[in-house]
């Protein structure tokens, strides 16, 4: 009983302390604010308008008020500049089959084939060879910087506007074939396992 009274006293004291704190807070918050608004209100407003007037006197501070602020550091994007080389010397439009011709293995094979034949037969095959799609001979004579199968021309700039497209070979290579077959086998085995499992469970439930 005694302890219960003690609890009540402590609780009462705490409640009193809390209420008084809250009251003080309200007094200093609201009443102080009201007093400021009533007593020092005129001076306050005058000060405000004075600063406003001082700001408005300077066009720069008016500009600052309408400014969206300074720019942040993170920029989303901006359009890249065309490389100077690409802008200056456009590739000639006649080179329609350029990508086909630029395939290095074909080029080396042609070279190996043509050079001995050229030595053997002379002028006739030279003309023929000029008509053949030769990667090394034709463009090198006309436009030295254009044909380097390694991509020296396109790699020159920092940003490539359109890198040369890779030409898919018409016949799939053995690795591709084997991958596809492996995929089919995997799918097939999975299906078989699933039907087998279902049949088993059905049989079990029937039994």
């Amino acid at each position: 009983m005694k302890f219960r009274r003690g609890v009540a006293v402590v609780a009462g004291l705490c409640a009193l302390a809390w209420i008084s704190t809250a009251a003080v807070g309200r007094i200093s918050g609201e009443w102080g604010g009201e007093a400021g608004a009533r007593g020092g209100g005129a001076a306050h407003a005058a000060g405000l308008s004075a600063t406003l007037a001082a700001m408005m006197r300077d066009p720069l501070s008016i500009f600052a008020m309408r400014s969206p602020g300074e720019r942040g550091l993170a920029l989303l994007s901006s359009k890249p500049e065309r490389t100077r080389a690409a802008a200056a010397e456009e590739p000639p439009t006649e080179r329609v089959l350029s990508t086909v011709r630029e395939r290095p293995p074909v080029a080396s094979a042609l070279d190996e084939f043509i050079l001995p034949a050229d030595e053997l037969l002379g002028g006739d095959l030279m003309q023929l060879a000029a008509l053949e799609p030769q990667p090394e001979v034709v463009p090198l004579g006309v436009l030295p910087p254009l044909v380097t199968p390694g991509g020296g021309f396109w790699g020159g700039g920092g940003d490539e506007p359109n890198p040369p497209p890779s030409v898919p070979t018409p016949v799939p290579e053995p690795a591709t074939w084997s991958m596809m077959l492996l995929g089919f086998f995997t799918i097939g085995s999975l299906l078989r396992r699933r039907t087998a499992a279902r049949a088993r469970s059905e049989a079990r439930s029937a039994a």
């Binding site: 020092g40 004075a50 600063t51 001082a54």
Partner: peptide, 8 residues
């Protein structure tokens, strides 16, 4: 409370 501005 703003600081007093210099007179215009």
């Amino acid at each position: 409370a703003p600081p007093a501005a210099p007179p215009p």
